[in-house]
Design a binder for these strands. Structure first.
Lengths: 150, 150
DNA sequence: TTAAGTGCAAAAGCTTTGCGGGTAG
DNA sequence: CTACCCGCAAAGCTTTTGCACTTAA
């Protein structure tokens, strides 16, 4: 993520904290920064590892708690994932995912036509839609190459 | 799921096993049946609990292993989920999900226009798409009512 | 007969919680 | 000063693995 956008997000964090009377701690800033720097959809544990590599000492519990808060505040999002750990996503704008059915990897994918998709009516089930994402499910290049070898 | 469709899926299991030289065990049939009976997207542990309630004794390890196989064989699918456990989905046809950003629940949603969505071109990233699903992200009725109380 | 599948038990991986002490506002 | 937050350590889920035994084909 570019410097600009990252700083902007940190500023959002400041603002949201002030609005809600939450404390803006060094840990929160560091954890948000680590997610923004990740290319993929890191787990809480990977965020913790990234911070450790940077010699930022934050306890695991705090990482778990903080990521949950950041997601609730809308400063990061949760990636829906076929795997067995919560994944966080620095992207909070509309975008889409390629989901590999072999290796369970999830990659970002952008497409204007998908972005323009009108939100269907879900009032009949009492659900209020805020955004949508399309999952394209299939087989990634690496998995196909592996299977071709056989 | 209706009786018909369920029996059909069990028959698919038989056929796939025969084709690939896999053993068609009582456990596999029972585990598949349990997923087909679930209304939601059960975790492996919930499938295990369902079987226990039915006095079908299968070890946890077998449930985990078998669900993974069934998904790989295409007899069930994995539901992409924001939570911290793998979720299985009896539906293998095209359908969509409502994802609640408060409680992380995922509900099925059907919509013809979404079904008709053309699959975008992903060849440039070497990814072969087999199917797509749309996630409608928002707040479910229960969570909205809870927030209104405050 | 035999390759594949199962159960068990232990280990590994992921997440939450309670509580005492620390700190931003 | 005082909520709110953090670190720690323990407990609680979720999943995988190695191995000996069983079973479908």
């Amino acid at each position: 993520m570019e410097r600009r956008a990252k700083d902007e997000r940190i500023r959002q964090l400041q603002q949201v904290c002030r609005e809600r009377g939450l404390a803006l701690t060094a840990q929160r800033r560091a954890i948000l920064r680590a997610v923004l720097d990740a290319q993929d959809h890191p787990t809480a544990d990977r965020v913790h590892a990234t911070l450790a590599r940077r010699h930022v000492r934050v306890s695991r519990a705090t990482v778990y708690r903080t990521l949950e808060s950041l997601a609730r505040l809308g400063l990061v999002s949760k990636a829906c994932h076929p795997g067995s750990a919560v994944r966080y996503d620095r992207r909070i704008d509309r975008h889409h995912h390629l989901v590999c059915l072999r290796c369970d990897r999830v990659m970002d994918f952008s497409d204007e036509r998908l972005d323009a998709l009108p939100v269907p009516d879900t009032r009949r089930v009492g659900f209020v839609v805020e955004d949508l994402r399309v999952q394209l499910r299939g087989i990634c290049r690496e998995c196909r190459e592996q299977e071709d070898e056989k």
